[in-house]
């Protein structure tokens, strides 16, 4: 340790950095870098590459008795299927607010969780839902309809 002339060395004086300290800092730095790097690696794990969700595609046949404006809810699905003069269309019944399942009413849809209301075509009329209920892709194969809950189509698309 070097000191200025005329001044006594004190243990409170800042010390110049000896080589040993420099090496120590370098070691600490690389250890920290290794930890951070491995943390990133560990954080990569919880985000799965393949999500374990059940298939969102299914087929249904509409009952002949289905009236215009009446919703048909395929079993186990959060989808409402309608039929009118122009064709068949499917609207998702998962609320765009926070994911509750909306109920189909003659006037449209009603969400039990925070009171969002939707018109018959899915547009929001009341409450906190930020956007309209999405229309889902329907492909008709004779009487059988194939519906994909993951694929949205522009509102008003009927087949």
């Amino acid at each position: 340790m070097t000191t200025k002339p005329g001044k006594e060395a004190s243990r409170f004086d800042p010390e110049p950095m000896p080589r040993r300290d420099f090496l120590g800092l370098a070691a600490l730095g690389s250890a920290a870098a290794a930890v951070i790097f491995s943390l990133f690696g560990m954080l990569r794990l919880p985000k799965a590459a393949v999500l374990t969700s059940p298939s969102k595609k299914f087929s249904v046949t509409l009952p002949d008795t289905l009236e215009e404006g009446e919703a048909f809810i395929p079993e186990g699905r959060s989808v409402a299927v309608f039929k009118d003069a122009e064709g068949v269309f499917a609207i998702s019944t998962i609320c765009t607010h926070l994911g509750c399942v909306v109920a189909s009413r003659p006037e449209g849809f009603e969400c039990p969780c925070h009171g969002s209301r939707f018109a018959g075509d899915g547009t929001v009329t009341k409450g906190p839902a930020p956007k309209a209920l999405p229309w889902l892709k329907v492909t008709a194969d004779g009487n059988r309809l194939q519906i994909d809950e993951n694929e949205e189509v522009p509102g008003g698309t009927k087949v």
Binding site: P46, A48, L51, T52, S53
Partner: peptide, 13 residues
């Protein structure tokens, strides 16, 4: 959401 649920929906993950 995906990191919290590990899936698209609230399930086993």
């Amino acid at each position: 959401r995906t990191i919290l649920l590990g899936s698209d929906e609230v399930g086993a993950e």
